[in-house]
């Protein structure tokens, strides 16, 4: 029997795959026995991991074939180095060959691995191009965001290049980390110690209200599984009309919230009745607020 409320955020990369896919269907590519670890870390005196911090392979989800990649947030912050990135790129490109019901990316990453910075950055661009290619072929790419690192740096750009995004309540999605902003621009710009501020700016609820992600779920692997199943074989259009519509939506956002300085300002402007209560709501209560707002806007 499948455990119903296994924590997604606390699970390892492999645990997330095991819990998400149909039991016993996962087959890994370039797994740990292939020993394709980072060629760059030993020179820096740093330990490597046999899978370079990412697990990729194929399996079944609700009976349908999927390709899946899962970043291990516990290894170097889920960061993308040369091998790690190449595994994700190869996985996405396999989507062109086998046309699965989706390519699913379980993201838990601080971004580029600075210890192999250049190779990691270019790998990020390769992953992203592969996302666009597989999407253009009609295969949906689904990003799931949860875990200790959230989704930052180049990986946040990759995430927003996918068809669909689901985040956990504790998921965060942003390009620059709070610590980096504070270190460069000062504590007046961003107080990285203010965790509530971090969540109001970068957290899953703000991203959901803003329309940057498509679903917010409770912290359970089963909830992620259900969200992903709902998007199998559901690619979003990527043609000129779709991209122009997205452009209009983003331009309207920047105009509308030009004066906002806090997530609370944005939520109030969106018509959330008690914005100060949003951070305290559990996933069900929060989603009820989102649903009532969507109902009202229809």
């Amino acid at each position: 029997m499948r455990p119903v409320r296994r924590s997604y955020d606390e699970a390892t990369a492999r645990g997330r795959i095991d819990g998400l896919l149909d039991a016993g269907t996962f087959r890994e590519f370039c797994g740990p026995t292939a020993r394709r670890s980072s060629p760059h870390l030993p020179a820096l005196g740093l330990p490597v991991s046999f899978d370079d911090g990412v697990v990729v392979g194929e399996g079944r989800l609700d009976g349908r074939p999927v390709l899946i990649g899962s970043q291990e947030g516990g290894f170097m912050g889920g960061s993308v180095g040369e091998v790690h990135g190449a595994k994700l790129t190869g996985l996405l490109e396999r989507g062109l060959d086998v046309e699965p019901a989706a390519v699913v990316l379980l993201l838990d990453s601080g971004g580029v691995r600075l210890q192999e910075a250049n190779a990691g950055l270019i790998a990020m661009g390769e992953i992203q191009r592969a996302v666009f290619r597989v999407r253009a072929a009609g295969v949906p790419v689904i990003a799931a965001i949860g875990g200790r690192n959230g989704c930052y740096g180049g990986m946040s750009i990759v995430a927003r290049s996918c068809d669909w995004i689901v985040v956990s309540e504790q998921g965060r999605l942003s390009i620059s980390g709070p610590e980096v902003i504070e270190a460069v621009e000062g504590i007046e710009e961003f107080d990285a110690q203010d965790r509530a501020l971090v969540w109001r700016t970068m957290g899953g609820k703000h991203r959901r209200l803003l329309g940057e992600v498509d679903a917010l779920v409770e912290n359970s692997i089963e909830a992620f599984r259900m969200a992903v199943i709902g998007w199998l074989e559901q690619p979003r259009p990527l043609d000129l009309a779709a991209v122009e519509a997205e452009h209009a939506r983003l331009e309207a956002r920047l105009r509308r919230f030009a004066e906002c300085r806090d997530g609370l300002d944005v939520w109030r402007d969106l018509g959330v009745e008690r914005p100060e209560e949003i951070p305290e709501l559990d996933a069900d209560a929060f989603n009820a607020v989102v649903a009532s707002m969507e109902e009202r806007d229809r």
């Binding site: 750009i157 927003r160 942003s174 961003f190 991203r207 983003l250 300085r261």
Partner: peptide, 16 residues
Amino acid sequence: LSLWDELMGNNGCIAH
């Protein structure tokens, strides 16, 4: 690097 740009989803705008 600014709070407002993160609030607006700079990653989404760059992805766009």
